[in-house]
């Protein structure tokens, strides 16, 4: 088991280097530092001296992969790729355009993101599984059909509508919660409750359909028939036999999401003015702050890879048949 995890972690390294290479190609080759300087400086008459000065200040005045002027090992290390891209591995994200330490910013903004993402995830999971079980209990009836139609409709409406409609109804017309904002501590509840409700609701459509199909596959299997033949009630079959077996694909499917919860929801946070990582990223995209976008890309893929490893581990925990080697 331990050996397997070590192997997976080692396999993650070339992938992260690949991610770095992609972001590097995007940020420094397709879009050369000269172009960046020109669009950052903004002015129509940009002199070559101004561009050089800007690159000097940012440390972008090095060659891309190979430094001919340097000697020995620094031929490779004194380049943009190593200095700007590989240093992300040490979680050194550098400074944003307005000279703030990105690492500190990320640390500060992590908690508001989690305050929304974690409850949304847990409440959503419980709601969706209960709804799916309810539909399974009434499978083949009119309730099943109606619920499935509602699920398709919920799925077909853009999440942006739910957010806008929720804000208009709950905040503007009924004055139940503030429209947007955030405060630390328990005061946060009134700010996060609406995003959580909307997040759970907009996820119902696709998840319930997915869980229902998983449960439907299980319910036709022999062990369920045996349980029924034993004379168990439908309810106890659902909870004692179907649920544990159906949970396996569901849990392993959602484990990969758990680490990325840190990243927050881009849209939700930006609409509700929550100072989390999602709105951080959006603001960076809108302000074209490449340093932050680069850091978030790295962080996102790092967390995703952790999620993949956790998924594999969760297989062995939940399903004793799976042996990892």
């Amino acid at each position: 088991m331990l050996l397997y995890i070590i192997k997976r972690v080692l396999y993650a390294i070339p992938i992260l280097i690949g991610v770095n290479l992609i972001t590097f190609i995007l940020f420094f080759m397709v879009n050369s530092p000269d172009d960046m300087a020109r669009s950052q400086l903004g002015a129509k008459q940009v002199t070559p001296q101004m561009i050089e000065a800007w690159k000097e200040k940012k440390g972008y005045n090095k060659p891309l992969f190979l430094n001919d002027k340097a000697k020995g090992i620094s031929k490779i290390t004194d380049t943009l790729f190593v200095k700007e891209s590989l240093k992300l591995f040490s979680f050194d994200f550098g400074y944003s355009d307005n000279n703030r330490d990105i690492k500190e910013d990320i640390k500060d903004r992590m908690y508001p993101s989690l305050a929304i993402a974690l409850p949304t995830f847990i409440i959503g999971l419980v709601t969706n599984i209960s709804l799916a079980l309810l539909i399974i209990l009434f499978r083949g009836t009119i309730l099943d059909t109606t619920m499935m139609i509602i699920a398709v409709i919920i799925m077909s409406i853009s999440g942006l509508f739910y957010i806008i409609a929720g804000q208009v109804l709950f905040s503007k017309m009924w004055h139940l919660v503030p429209i947007s904002g955030y405060e630390n501590g328990f005061g946060a509840i009134k700010f996060v409750i609406l995003p959580i409700i909307i997040g759970v609701f907009s996820g119902i459509g696709s998840s319930v359909r997915w869980y229902r199909s998983i449960f439907l596959e299980e319910i036709n299997k022999d062990y369920i028939r045996t349980a029924r033949a034993k004379g168990l009630s439908e309810i106890s079959i659902l909870f004692k036999h179907l649920l544990p077996n159906g949970m396996l694909p569901i849990l392993t499917g959602v484990v990969v999401i758990i680490p990325t919860l840190f990243m927050g929801s881009l849209i939700m946070e930006s609409f509700f003015g929550i100072p989390g990582l999602g709105s951080y990223t959006i603001d960076a995209i809108k302000a074209q702050d490449f340093a932050i976008v680069k850091a978030m890309v790295f962080l996102g893929s790092f967390l995703y890879i952790i999620g993949l490893i956790l998924t594999d581990i969760s297989y062995t925990i939940f399903d004793p048949r799976v042996k990892l080697g």
Binding site: I15, G18, V19, I22, T23, M263, Y304
Partner: peptide, 9 residues
């Protein structure tokens, strides 16, 4: 590798 980068980003 491509998959591991969050698609929106």
């Amino acid at each position: 590798t491509l998959n591991s980068i969050p698609s929106v980003l």
